[in-house]
Design a protein around this nucleic acid. Structure first.
Lengths: 187, 187
DNA sequence: GTAGCCTGAGAACGGCCGTTCCCGGGCACC
DNA sequence: GGTGCCCGGGAACGGCCGTTCTCAGGCTAC
């Protein structure tokens, strides 16, 4: 098997298992079985489980942001609509089968105190998201501080949807975001 | 040693260790050493680790809500001030030494997929918090839907403060809450 | 005083898991 | 066709952890 396809299969399996069942309850043997990549190859590519987790988070970060940005792009050019599109996308994400909350929040809860590497990746993902939001807010001519507030709404929606399942938190967050935007443009 | 003091010492140790280091990285021996309660007694009181975790979450839930309600009571009688006092309290909580995010969010991330018991307790805690918030919102004569939005802000602040440490998320959430309240009272 | 019960301390057990090692087989190259 | 190399499969290892067991010691009741 090619090195690149091995890496892809490995990360595919890791993502499905880690996201679906958590990190600690998935053994390396599970990953080996699911991916079809031999344990030896796994450890050649990632010398420790930690680093496999980090690679999984990294690749997912890339895909997650691409999907989000894609949805925002498809929403058109009106800058306020684009900001609100973030919350629309959250809603469709929450509604996907197999949704289990935010991978980074879950990972942080599980390994934040144990693996500084994972903690760093979680923080980096959240920083990146907030930065993306700040860009949209700025393009809409809204005050920069609004981005922090909107990010709290989004994070809260992710947590709530993760625990209770369902898309309602995204709708609530979207309504709140709209109100905050109106409030900010009036001032 | 008295049964009641044994239980208290046990839960004290469990809370400190579980909250500070996570559940899975704390062994029963650690708890035994920290509490001074023999392993035999531990298993008499809680036949499995799961149930000790649940008891820890339960007692913390009681104390957490009592502290929150105490702060809100001390804030006076103006109903809007009382709602905002929730976010003030979050700020002082985030600033405490040893703050490590929301115990229930962390536990859910760690054990939500593994222990239905823990998942239930996390959901119950969040439901209770939202209910408390809804009471404050109703007393202020504000629309009931606002409570859901404020709860998203609070959850988002807890997650963000947990990952990045610091009290800024509470201030941002408070400012956003104030804006949402104004928006709701204008309508 | 003695018999019996309860307790605490720690060892023991069974299982799991991350990581490494070994072996047999297939492929490339001479 | 042979030889050596690399790879996959899976066993092995070391350590940890939840849970149970053993045993010695002290308290209680007569």
């Amino acid at each position: 098997m090619d090195q690149d396809t091995a890496r892809t299969r490995l990360l595919d399996a890791a993502e499905q298992l880690f996201y679906g069942r958590g990190i600690q309850s998935v053994g390396m043997d599970d990953i080996r079985t699911a991916s079809g990549v031999s344990l030896k190859r796994v450890y050649q590519l990632y010398p420790a489980k930690d680093e496999l987790v980090a690679a999984y988070l990294d690749r997912r970060d890339e895909q997650w942001h691409a999907r989000l940005a894609g949805h925002v792009s498809a929403a058109g050019t009106d800058p306020v609509t684009r900001v609100l599109a973030v919350f629309d996308w959250l809603g469709s994400w929450f509604g996907e089968p197999g949704f289990r909350g935010c991978a980074w929040i879950n990972c942080y809860g599980e390994l934040g105190t144990v693996s500084p590497l994972v903690a760093r990746h979680a923080a980096a993902h959240k920083t990146r998201f907030r930065g993306y939001l700040a860009g949209l807010v700025t393009e809409a001519g809204l005050p920069a501080g609004l981005a922090d507030q909107l990010s709290l709404l989004a994070e809260g929606a992710m947590v709530t949807a993760g625990i209770f399942r369902g898309t309602a938190p995204a709708r609530d967050a979207r309504a709140a975001a709209q109100a905050l935007i109106e409030h900010a443009s009036e001032a």
